[in-house]
Design a protein around this nucleic acid. Sequence first.
DNA 1: AGTGGCACCTGTGTGC
DNA 2: TGCACACAGGTGCCAC
Length: 275
Amino acid sequence: MPELPEVEVTRRGVAPYLEHCRVQQVEFDEYSLREPFDPRLTSLAGAVIDAVQRRGKYLLIRSAKGSIIIHLGMTGHLKVLPEDSPVVKHDHFALYLDNGKVIRLNDMRRFGLVRFVPPELDPLEDKHLKDLGPEPLEDGFDGSYLHTRLKRVKGAIKPALMNSAVVVGVGNIYASESLFAARIHPESPACAVPEDKCAELAAVIKETLARSIEQGGTTIRDFSGADGKPGYFVQNLQVYGHAGKPCPRCGSEILKIVQGQRSTFFCPHCQQRYG
DNA sequence: AGTGGCACCTGTGTGC
DNA sequence: TGCACACAGGTGCCAC
């Protein structure tokens, strides 16, 4: 489900209800997500939330009594609801707040993750976060960085873009979309993409992600923001999900291939193969 | 160190 | 109608 824009839209949706509010109660069910719930999560009762941050596709909820790391996996989403609203199927985790709201995590496929980080540890040093690559919307991510990083990668550029050690937040949709925008064939060996194309690629990744955030993210099937509203960026998708349709640039038929067990969409005419 | 394959889950759509 | 299968926005671990 959520790539960087969807996680950022979620963060912006829940932050006003969490920041500076006090946690009254923490609840989780008996199911495991990617890993079991940490019983220490209940020690956050009484904590005041200082900040809700994002690192890649991870959300960080910080307080003096410890932090929560949340990953939404493929189908996870957070909802802001009145505290007396009923638990529905696939709700697995809840934070009850002193403002009359409850934040619920609903995750059908349970690929998501909720971790507790004790107050003496830095959540950014958690094993899931410490080796992440740069944030694509920050200055450290540019053509020079990308070119240097991709020089070592013999495999295709599309799965390389989805590697969170290269850059965080670019998932299956935005990898296809960004390569289309930069006119790079997704099967090009990453190490063969010239520096000027890496610069163009870095720039279009920034643009694509930023525009998607502005439009509330991309809803294919079940993403919605914390307010329950879908994202509208799906209307701007140029190739993702468009196999067999004409390329919006040249009219050639958009193809779908499989790379690393994930679907890739591209225009074989106007995306150049390097290497 | 880099890479490919698979596993973890549930739901939906398609074809027989 | 039932069944089998493919596929879905992610990531971690394993063997090579």
